[in-house]
Design a protein around this nucleic acid. Sequence first.
DNA 1: GCACATAGTGTCGAAAAGGATACTGTCCGC
DNA 2: GCGGACAGTATCCTTTTCGACACTATGTGC
Lengths: 124, 124
Amino acid sequence: MAKARHSRFDCTPGCSVEAAIGLIDGKWKSIILWHLLSGTLRFNELRRHVQNCTPRMLTNQLREMEENGLITRKVYAQVPPKVEYSLSELGRSMEPILRTLKEWGDANIGLYGKPTGHDPREAA
Amino acid sequence: MAKARHSRFDCTPGCSVEAAIGLIDGKWKSIILWHLLSGTLRFNELRRHVQNCTPRMLTNQLREMEENGLITRKVYAQVPPKVEYSLSELGRSMEPILRTLKEWGDANIGLYGKPTGHDPREAA
DNA sequence: GCACATAGTGTCGAAAAGGATACTGTCCGC
DNA sequence: GCGGACAGTATCCTTTTCGACACTATGTGC
């Protein structure tokens, strides 16, 4: 997901769709982004919010999003380390995407019977 | 991606975002969905549209989306097989998502310097 | 009889993503 | 001096994803 997964920007129309997805895809990114919409958060605050995400994964996702310019990492040279994560302008520009996604999810998942989640192959 | 990857619907707010992403995530799904927005397509038509997607992968993605209720598969009992894929109502309801995603992608990727694609770790 | 088209399936293997667990260093409170 | 909080790292391992390639069956055209 990190690297070349969605890096075919030369593909058929729809590639920008893919490219956009590529940036928010990754098990925790959307949640992280979602929380950051409400404001700046520190590493361990995020950890608590995301709960079952290991620190390794959290760092990982955060770093990728930083590289992609979605978030900003601000380190305070303090004795007990302090690092703040916030959305960059680009990250904030994704708000409509996140919202559209959430609206659709709220409207269609559960109401519809959880498109994912149920998976016939498990029941059968 | 297929199964339990994004199946934490009980998580913190933002889970519906994740759930929605889970349905369009998967290397080819967004492209397929995108093409189907313009109308019904047959298997090999899709193949030609998506180009570098192996038939195995195509079947795979198509099946997952069918299970998720996003697309409809219509088989014609003909001698040279004929199978048509089209968006279901649920699938069509994703149009705003796809469009938002595409708009964002068009506006921010390339213009911004291809957030993915460049990856400092490769150059460094 | 051979190739082509249709719509796939099956097997194999590599790579990536993700998870578990333990560890770093520094300061504070006790 | 012990343990906690801070912000991560390092290492190992499993699962998932994806791609290559060959292969199925049936009918048509040559």
